[in-house]
Design a protein around this nucleic acid. Structure first.
Lengths: 120, 120
DNA sequence: ATGACTGGTTACCAGGAGGTAACCGCTAAA
DNA sequence: TTTAGCGGTTACCTCCTGGTAACCAGTCAT
């Protein structure tokens, strides 16, 4: 008897806009990467330094994924040694408002925390 | 010899606003739940029906977490049988802009997909 | 007294996301 | 010629997330 196969029916294409967008910006570190790139283009090592805690593996993986999604452009400057620059594509720019909104809420949350901490 | 224990140092409190906010709205289904609740209060079964694919387990887990985070309020209406209603708290309302921004981008992405599909 | 609905809880388990560490080729500087 | 930095790649392993399924108490209609 073969082990029972999982019946992965793969949820139907219920691509609601929320899910659609989250499939791009979801996943650890992705929003951080997009945020930094939305400020200005950055190089690999630069990003790695900007985002404390991220590993080279994850950074590569995310950048590849984002490039495949058409959100990020990777360009190799023909310097010696060559340097690699990542920047948001035009499509990537579309994501800025979402990231910014999240950041803003993050700020609000901190404000609220701080005031409730001190107002006692 | 005991198996090597993982040295989980738990990244320092680098709570950037992005991470801050994502710790609330991150996790599967959470944005969907918040989005539906941002429209109007809903009952457990209603939410479960609204969000295709979510399991009761996840829904309970998310609602509990959101309640603990002060984002959602759970109130039991003293009907017979009692019905349970979930709604966004005032704090929860703060999240609406972020969710909406994500939804909007989702729409844009679809638009762009559609036009590039047909424009050839 | 049986079935159905509401609002869950629980145990079990697979898969995948992500961390760590080692290694890589290339170049330039010391 | 050894070292350092850049931009990764790869193998390995762990743990956490989330899915499935069974079960539960209370209430109502039949």
């Amino acid at each position: 008897m073969l082990p029972r196969r999982k019946n992965r029916v793969e949820a139907p294409p219920e691509r609601c806009p929320l899910t659609e967008c989250l499939s791009i910006i979801g996943g650890a570190w992705t929003p951080n990467i997009i945020w930094y790139l939305s400020q200005r283009p950055r190089r690999f090592t630069e990003l790695k330094a900007d985002i404390p805690g991220i590993s080279a593996k994850m950074l590569t993986a995310r950048l590849k994924r984002l490039e495949a999604d058409g959100v990020v452009e990777r360009r190799v400057e023909p310097t010696s040694p060559p340097s690699v620059e990542y920047r948001l594509s035009e499509l990537g720019q579309e994501l800025k408002p979402a990231i910014e909104a999240i950041v803003n809420v993050g700020h609000r949350l901190k404000e609220l925390n701080d005031t409730t901490d001190t107002e006692t």
